[in-house]
Design a protein around this nucleic acid. Structure first.
Lengths: 132, 132
DNA sequence: GCTATTATAGACTCATAAAGTCCTTAATGG
DNA sequence: CCATTAAGGACTTTATGAGTCTATAATAGC
């Protein structure tokens, strides 16, 4: 069980966007160069972030990506979910009665994990940003 | 990101073993029937649990699997690790300086997740077992 | 309005891992 | 010795991650 490398790219891309000037869009070309990944592949990931409402994109000349205004709100969990999806960490494949005790334990663990990841904001990592 | 179904099988198999008489070994045939999975596949998973030191196996007639004496100690994390391995949830693939802030956040989340899963024992789910 | 630039999207490839099957070998109790 | 049971190697099948390649759509600047 592991987070995909795509999540790694997305987290770093978001960090880069946060650290960039908020008014000037950053193109996928520059991002891909910084992350040492192909433009076309990264652009698919960026599109996921756009669809998740985390960033804004503008096509055309001088276009690119910008973080949304509520950037301080963007958590690790937001980004991870945008890339990995929202499927549960564990799902018991049996039906023994109505509820699986094992599943309940793992689900609670997942709930705590997500709570922590939701509390951590990307903006926290950028020097000079105030989050609170 | 998801735990494999193999982990699901293993957790349920352990729960079954805990709930069985500790002196009489349970064969993979019975286990596989209870879990609706093939014997050969399940036996591979059971072997992993044996190698991890969680259960004891005896071949030959009347053989099978038994939990080890320190059964109260067996945690969800033990079982999950035996099946999934101990690889980290997240590993940053870049080398930007010495440490990745992103990785540190996710690693801390993972540490908490594992702490919780280590605190939960399979024996807790078996009525009539005392854990503390 | 034309053109260069940039995001979006579909179709495809390639490698890896999960999930499982089949067959053989080794150990052990009766 | 034999029936029973675990262990292990070799294989298949399917799904997913990680990309590539090519085309299309939108937009700014001239």
């Amino acid at each position: 069980m592991k987070y995909s490398q795509a999540t790694d790219y997305a987290l770093h891309a978001m960090l880069f966007l946060e650290a960039s000037a908020p008014d000037k869009p950053v193109g996928v070309q520059l991002l891909a160069e910084k992350l040492s990944v192909s433009q076309t592949y990264l652009s698919k990931l960026m599109t996921k972030l756009v669809k998740a409402g985390l960033i804004h994109s503008s096509p055309g000349a001088n276009g690119g990506y910008r973080v949304k205004r509520k950037q301080e709100e963007i958590s690790f969990l937001d980004i991870i979910r945008a890339i990995e999806g929202t499927a549960s960490l564990f799902e018991c494949s049996f039906d023994h009665g109505t509820e699986c005790q094992i599943q309940q334990v793992v689900m609670e663990a997942e709930r705590q994990l997500e709570h922590y990841l939701a509390s951590k904001k990307i903006a926290d990592l950028v020097p000079g940003h105030k989050t609170e």
